[in-house]
Design a protein around this nucleic acid. Structure first.
Lengths: 190, 190
DNA sequence: GGAAGTCGTTCGTCAAGGCGAACACATGGA
DNA sequence: TCCATGTGTTCGCCTTGACGAACGACTTCC
């Protein structure tokens, strides 16, 4: 498969409808109250939640602010909470190479979405990772040594105690600059 | 900072305008060509790129598919999503004592629930934490030094690279055994 | 030069989104 | 019971987004 880009299935009016109602219920608010706070007519909101209609950006934005939900989350379907362990990423993966060892410390239970790795690397070729699924964010705290970490095109040099976060859905890299470089990597996906 | 949620600065019409033009240029397509492929009038696209107008979801969706850009990226500004916090920088929490410093690296967005801390501690009195709310789980990876970590009644001694997890809703403790003990602490609650 | 092509903008028209009021329905007191 | 309050829906009206054609500016080629 190519990169799983935009879900091609037409404008996600149904998704928006579902998201709006779900988030409104979650907030425990009535349709009228949300409409009032967002400054839109409740008739409009009613039609949107029923799947009728095709809101403008302004309207959707007002709702996303009112419901305190990121704009994108209203239109993109809630991420399937599937846990993906790609080939070579599980605990079984000791090391593709001797100079880079990743240990899975805590795997993500079905409902949480977070993996914690301990990365031990030696200087040498960079360890590049292909993009993970969209929405993945990685955090790295360097423990000992020095390393170049981050987006493949523009990594950041880290010293002990330094922290960096970057999107995991683009190519990223981990290149140790000193022997016995140690880092903690937290990967979260929404 | 608290949760940086939706950028509150009004509907991102200007952002959409910029994104549309940027992505269209990137694809090396003319305005008319993009409009044709997306099945919308080029006059509409012209107004959108000029910042005038307030597109409907359907219209924006058609453009996002045509330009092969995730819908969200058109409306959310392409934020430089790589953030670095150098050792010693970042918001230090609970500097009640000089021998224990906690730095919040990544706070939990409203819907996800995970905080990442960098803990820097000196030997001395243990740092006991009262029980947090139920369901909290803490993970600790020791970077440098040695420390006693875990449940207050039965802590575990950690060496560099060691990892421990324990429930956060009972009293727990972090006691450094060597100077300049450094650890990464991930706190998650469901 | 000027005819033909493309570029992006602007103008008039039309349909659709958004609005407020009225509506049906359920709850809960007095 | 009746009235009051709150829910979400449906109805006409009006503003506005989207359309197609015409436009000026620019390049290319004969």
């Amino acid at each position: 498969m190519a990169h799983d880009e935009n879900p091609p299935g037409g404008p996600p009016l149904a998704v928006i409808a579902a998201s709006l109602q779900r988030e409104r219920r979650r907030a425990g608010l009535s349709l009228a109250e949300v409409a009032r706070r967002a400054g839109i007519a409740k008739s409009t909101l009613s039609q949107l939640e029923s799947g009728t209609g095709n809101p403008s950006v302004e309207t959707l934005w007002a709702l996303s602010v009112t419901l305190d939900v990121p704009f994108a989350q209203l239109v993109e379907p809630p991420r399937p909470r599937v846990q993906v362990i790609r080939a070579g990423e599980g605990p079984a993966l000791a090391a593709e190479r001797a100079d880079y060892v990743t240990t899975l410390l805590a795997s993500s239970p079905p409902n949480t979405r977070r993996d914690i790795y301990l990365v031990s690397a030696q200087p040498g070729a960079a360890r590049e990772s292909d993009p993970h699924m969209p929405g993945v964010v990685e955090h790295v705290v360097l423990s000992t040594g020095r390393a170049l970490v981050g987006i493949a095109e523009d990594p950041v040099e880290l010293a002990p105690g330094d922290y960096v976060t970057y999107p995991g859905d683009v190519s990223h890299v981990f290149r140790a600059l000193e022997p016995d470089t140690l880092a903690v990597l937290v990967s979260e996906h929404r």
